[in-house]
């Protein structure tokens, strides 16, 4: 889920493939438009680190090699 708008009172609009929802970001520091988050029962619990996400994907793709 990607943050597409930061709203007042520690809320944000997140979008996943064209579907948007308003959620709370009160459990995170420094949210910005473009951040990807892990969502649970209406609250953003963690930010997804794009570098680490890429690294995980690479490991997965490379799993069968060598």
């Amino acid at each position: 889920m990607r943050i597409t708008e930061v709203l007042p009172n520690e809320m944000a609009r997140v979008t996943l493939d064209g579907v948007s929802k308003t959620v709370s970001t009160a459990l995170l520091d420094d949210v910005a438009v473009g951040d990807y988050i892990v969502l649970h029962v209406g609250y953003a619990l963690a930010k997804i680190d794009p570098e680490e996400a890429e690294r995980t994907l690479e490991m997965l793709v490379m799993a069968g090699v060598g």
Binding site: L16, D17, G18, V19, K21, L39
Partner: peptide, 10 residues
């Protein structure tokens, strides 16, 4: 449809 999948995900 991607939006249906996303809504169901939510």
């Amino acid at each position: 449809k991607p939006q249906v999948a996303a809504a169901c995900e939510f």
